[in-house]
Computed example of a mutant assay.
Amino acid sequence: MPAGRIVTPDGVVEGHLTFADGRIAGIRSAPVDADAPWLVPGFVDLHVHGGGGASYASDDPDEVRAAAAWHLQGGTTTTLASLVTAPQEVLVQQVATVASVVEAGSTVVGSHLEGPFLDPGHKGAHDPRLLLAPDADLAERIVAAGRGTVRMMTLAPELPGGLELVAALAAAGVLPAVGHTDATADVVRSAAAAGARVGTHLFNGMRGLHHREPGTPGGLLDSPDVVCELICDGVHLDGAVVRLAFASARGGVVLVTDAISAAGAPDGRYRLGSLDVDVVDGVARLVEGGSIAGSTLTTGEAFRRAVRDFSVALEDVVQAASTRPARVLGLTDRGAVEVGLRADVVELSPDLAVQQVFLAGVPVR
Rank of each mutant, 00 (worst) to 15 (best):
residue 78 T to S: 15
residue 49 H to N: 14
residue 123 K to S: 10
residue 13 V to P: 03
residue 325 P to W: 05
residue 109 V to G: 01
residue 190 S to P: 00
residue 113 L to N: 03
residue 280 V to P: 04
residue 163 L to R: 08
residue 199 G to P: 04
residue 164 E to A: 15
residue 49 H to F: 08
residue 10 D to R: 15
residue 223 S to A: 14
residue 61 P to K: 10
residue 330 G to W: 11
residue 236 H to V: 04
residue 277 V to A: 07
residue 98 V to M: 06
residue 68 A to D: 01
residue 335 G to C: 07
residue 259 A to I: 06
residue 345 V to L: 06
residue 263 A to C: 10
residue 84 V to S: 00
residue 250 R to P: 05
residue 319 Q to E: 15
residue 222 D to P: 02
residue 50 G to H: 10
residue 349 S to C: 10
residue 362 V to M: 13
residue 209 L to R: 11
residue 283 V to I: 14
residue 173 G to H: 14
residue 349 S to M: 11
residue 204 N to G: 08
residue 235 V to W: 02
residue 327 R to M: 09
residue 102 V to R: 02
residue 295 S to C: 08
residue 149 T to E: 03
residue 333 D to I: 05
residue 243 R to T: 09
residue 50 G to R: 08
residue 74 G to K: 05
residue 318 V to D: 02
residue 53 G to C: 11
residue 293 A to T: 01
residue 58 S to V: 09
residue 20 A to R: 15
residue 92 V to I: 15
residue 25 A to G: 07
residue 11 G to N: 13
residue 92 V to P: 01
residue 339 V to K: 13
residue 311 S to H: 13
residue 237 L to F: 10
residue 102 V to E: 01
residue 50 G to Y: 12
residue 18 T to K: 11
residue 226 V to R: 00
residue 6 I to P: 00
residue 24 I to R: 01
residue 360 A to N: 12
residue 179 G to M: 02
residue 70 W to R: 05
residue 19 F to G: 04
residue 190 S to M: 06
residue 25 A to H: 02
residue 112 H to D: 11
residue 165 L to G: 01
residue 118 L to G: 02
residue 146 G to L: 09
residue 202 L to E: 09
residue 242 V to Q: 04
residue 293 A to W: 00
residue 141 R to S: 14
residue 116 P to R: 11
residue 125 A to D: 04
residue 238 D to Y: 14
residue 232 C to A: 12
residue 295 S to G: 06
residue 282 G to D: 07
residue 118 L to V: 07
residue 284 A to P: 04
residue 136 A to N: 11
